[in-house]
Design a protein around this nucleic acid. Structure first.
Length: 423
RNA sequence: CGGGGUGUAGCGCAGCCUGGUAGCGCACCUGCCUUGGGCGCAGGGGGUCCCCGGUUCAAAUCCGGGCACCCCGACCA
């Protein structure tokens, strides 16, 4: 894509409202803009990153045998009254009435809706297990939204729900999802730690949180230095590991995913039953599994940035290569740039070419801020020797090579991770 | 929801105490100039001073009420 045609409103100055680095950098890099407290517009660059996260999540959910569906954001009060959560959920549940004075809420989660679906459609053990997921906008009227996409009121979440014939089968679904989560966060290029956790308002028997390790994280977790046990702080008292009595070390983290064994809490309340192989009525055993999409993107920035800006892990980068003609008035620079741009694009790469009529310093600084992992600099200076520069954003390392070589190099660096361009 | 703070141009702020022509930097537009790290010169556009009410000859400024947003504490992907 051509920079001059894109809406990427970068800012030189620090937005004062933003406290944490991911929030600041997302605003400065022109990825998001605030509409109201905890409610944001994703600009083109931000949306591309969101789509990258979504796509990885989608691929791994599908690989694990989950099926994608899409449920409504507006949900009728009746379903919530059935489980008793209309009364329990409190002010975080944003309630509204339609023109006929019927009560609804904006969905903060979808156990009621999915259980309603399944009880109507699944009547036999032969149709179990079912794992269904969606990537959808949630609304939780948080007491105090903050930190940009890290804790918004409106946010994108992948939520999955499993239905099984018994505890044992449910555990298998749970393990499948847990394994998928490991793959997802690995593929996103994040350092993370699964921890044992409480199950909170969602209810259920046990749960695991997936924490991205970052100093600025809102959550604390403890990890054993000898046996690998890890838990969130509420779950563990004491300084010694409950498993092996080793030493527990505290870390900060950002909760990006959560897997729950729900048991029969919802199937019982909503009478989601099926006939087992003896023809006897039985309750579905459920699990639910969330991933904060925007929060994952924000966590990636918390973990990958420097004083100049964002350093995207390649799989989440809005573009894979950032081509900078240093002086767009030089014919030679432009011819070489266009050649590289065309060739890389034809190879299926996502290339951003900065064709703006800006001074070099502006382009360099914007490039470092936006944080695309590979920059290709084309300027008179090196072109005199028939060379261009390949700069790695993370290390700042510059390699001077010929045009043919840079195409070959970037191809090798980028294509093993290349995904089809969804836009 | 409690405590603290802010609301003036797209962004960052000054002006408010002591009422009297609404300002500065960045960004934006035009022209010239410049092109390897956020150039330079000249000209220019842009404001319900958060909203409602009050005091006053006169309110961004003083008073009352409301709203929004930010920060600190208990819940959550």
């Amino acid at each position: 894509m051509r920079y001059s045609k894109l809406l990427i409103p970068t800012l030189r100055e620090e937005p004062v409202e933003a406290e944490v680095v991911s929030h600041r950098l997302m605003i400065r890099a022109g990825m998001i803009r605030k509409v109201a407290a905890g409610i944001y517009t994703y600009l083109p660059l931000g949306l591309r990153v969101i789509r990258k996260v979504e796509q990885i999540v989608r691929e791994e959910m599908n690989r694990a045998g989950a099926q994608e569906l899409l449920m409504p954001m507006v949900q009728p009060a009746e379903l919530w009254q059935e489980t008793g959560r209309w009364g329990e959920y409190g002010k975080e549940l944003l309630r509204l009435k339609d023109r006929g004075e019927r009560e609804f809420c904006l969905g903060p989660t979808h156990e009621e809706v999915i259980t309603d679906l399944i009880r109507g459609e699944i009547k036999s053990y032969r149709n179990l297990p079912q794992i269904l997921y969606q990537i959808q906008t949630k609304f939780r009227d948080e007491i105090r939204p903050r930190f940009g996409l890290m804790r918004g009121r409106e946010f994108l979440m992948k939520d999955a729900y499993s239905f099984d014939r018994d505890e044992q089968a449910a555990k298998a679904s749970y393990d499948k999802m847990s394994k998928a989560y490991h793959r997802i966060f690995e593929r996103c290029g994040l350092k993370f730690q699964p921890v044992e956790a409480e199950s909170g308002v969602i209810g259920g028997t046990y749960s695991q949180e997936f924490m991205v390790l970052a100093e600025t994280g809102e959550d604390s977790l403890v990890a054993c230095d000898s046996c690998g046990f890890a838990a969130n702080v509420e779950k563990t008292q004491g300084k010694t590991c409950p498993r092996c009595r080793g030493r527990l070390i505290t870390h900060r983290g950002i909760e990006v995913g959560h897997v729950f064994m729900l048991g029969t809490k919802y199937s019982e309340a909503m009478k989601a039953t099926f006939l087992d192989h003896n023809g006897k009525e039985a309750l579905s055993v459920m699990g639910c599994y969330g991933i904060g999409i925007g929060r994952t993107a924000a966590a990636a920035i918390e973990q990958n940035h420097d004083t100049k800006g964002i350093i995207w892990p390649l799989p989440l980068a809005p573009y894979q290569a950032h081509l900078i003609p240093v002086n767009e008035q030089s014919e030679r620079v432009m011819i070489t740039s266009e050649l590289i741009y065309g060739t890389l694009s034809n190879l299926g790469m996502e290339v951003l070419i900065d064709d703006r009529s800006e001074r070099p310093g502006v382009k360099f600084n914007d490039a470092d801020l936006i944080g695309i992992p590979y920059q290709i600099l084309v300027g008179e200076k090196n072109l005199a020797d028939g060379r261009v520069e390949l700069k790695e954003r993370r290390t700042g390392k510059i390699t001077k090579v010929t045009t043919e070589e840079v195409i070959d190099l970037v191809k090798k660096l980028v294509l093993p991770d290349a995904r089809p361009d969804e836009s």
